[in-house]
């Protein structure tokens, strides 16, 4: 089976409301991440912090295809996925503050956002570790006769892990309803794709498990949306697991500790020209779907949202230290 390469999506089909929706979603991510960086410098957020700037089109594009019944499994660079999935910016920021009103009660921090209500299964910070869990969630749906999709995000670094190969094999062998989304941002921390993979075409690796596989421009939200819609429709139709490689780029360092010695400033500059928010905005303006006033309105709205989220996180409370061993085991349900 050969991986597909998707062509240019039909941007003309996007109406104004949808253009506003996509731009708002990507802008929310960008501004949240900027605020996180700022709060990290202000020492409000500690631990590891991995930001998503540059990759917004992937989370936003893919999530358009999901319904509330579906499940999402993500990585440690998952603020965007949680936000677009429906977790509030306030509870995400509160989590990073370490407050008990945070979406993981302050137990997880930036790398471990979880949310039962939106079926958001983390926040998995061991590279590759989320893939088998996604296969299991999908297996549970299949065995219980439920038609819903488990969407599993991971980076190209995970592709070198054994769990990637084990999971793809299991998913195809058992024909479970899972969508694998590889966010190929070209660097596993500081090691470039060509220094970690003998075969750098990720979609091809998936295809050799007979997994229907597509590679798409991950800087183009419409391209991602179109490819994800197709893949999710196939999963929902019972055609088994699907694989989507989104070729993207992270604009910021791997984490706040990264001095970025492994790539040139010029390379980053070149990629920034293809930034998903700027290119989408320009395209939509050219097509008359968006006006300057729309962009301004979205910026204002998002700024207020983030401001509110910070205020919420500031006002949240600390879990009492006496609770340090709560939830090691389930409460009140001992046999």
């Amino acid at each position: 089976m050969k991986p597909k390469r998707t062509g240019k999506p039909e941007a003309a089909a996007v109406d104004r409301d949808h253009a506003l929706h996509l731009l708002r979603a990507m802008t929310r991510i960008r501004r949240l991440e900027e605020k996180c960086a700022e709060l990290y410098s202000a020492m409000k957020i500690r631990g590891f912090l991995h930001l998503y700037d540059g990759q917004e089109a992937v989370a936003v594009g893919v999530m358009q295809a999901l319904t509330p019944e579906d499940a999402v499994v993500a990585t440690y660079r998952e603020h965007a996925h949680a936000l677009i999935r429906g977790v509030s910016a306030g509870s995400i920021l509160a989590e990073m503050y370490g407050k008990q009103e945070g979406c993981s009660r302050g137990r997880g921090g930036s790398m471990h956002l979880f949310d039962q209500e939106t079926r958001f299964y983390g926040g998995n910070a061991i590279v590759g570790g989320g893939l088998p869990i996604a296969v299991g969630l999908a297996l549970a749906d299949k065995m219980q006769g439920r038609v819903r999709v488990t969407c599993c995000f991971f980076g190209e670094g995970a592709v070198a892990e054994g769990e990637f190969h084990e999971s793809l094999n299991l998913a195809v062998l058992w024909q479970v309803p899972v969508l694998f989304v590889c966010e190929n941002n070209l660097y596993a921390m500081g090691t470039a794709l060509e220094f970690e993979h003998a075969v750098t075409d990720i979609a091809r690796k998936a295809a050799c498990y007979d997994l229907p596989s597509t590679a798409v421009d991950g800087m183009d939200v419409l391209a991602v949306e179109t490819a994800a819609a197709r893949a999710v429709a196939a999963v929902r139709a019972g055609e088994g697991p699907q694989f989507l490689e989104c070729r993207t780029y992270r604009f910021r360092a791997h984490s706040m500790y990264d001095a970025e010695l492994y790539r040139s400033k010029d390379e980053v500059r070149q990629w920034k020209k293809r930034g998903p928010i700027a290119t989408f905005t320009q395209k939509m303006k050219r097509r008359g779907r968006l006006a300057d006033a729309d962009v301004k309105a979205i910026e204002g709205e998002v700024a207020r949202e983030i401001e509110g989220a910070v205020a919420f996180a500031e006002a949240c409370t600390w879990e009492p230290v006496e609770d340090a061993t709560r939830f090691v085991y389930s409460e009140g349900r001992m046999p």
Partner: peptide
């Protein structure tokens, strides 16, 4: 074979799948 499920030699894969299935409402 659905309930007595042979697996490949993929310990991490199928134990992780067990975790996922448990999260998904099964009792693996």
């Amino acid at each position: 074979p659905e309930r007595i499920r042979d697996t490949p030699l993929s310990e991490s894969g199928f134990v992780g799948a067990g975790i996922g299935a448990a999260l998904g409402g099964m009792r693996p």
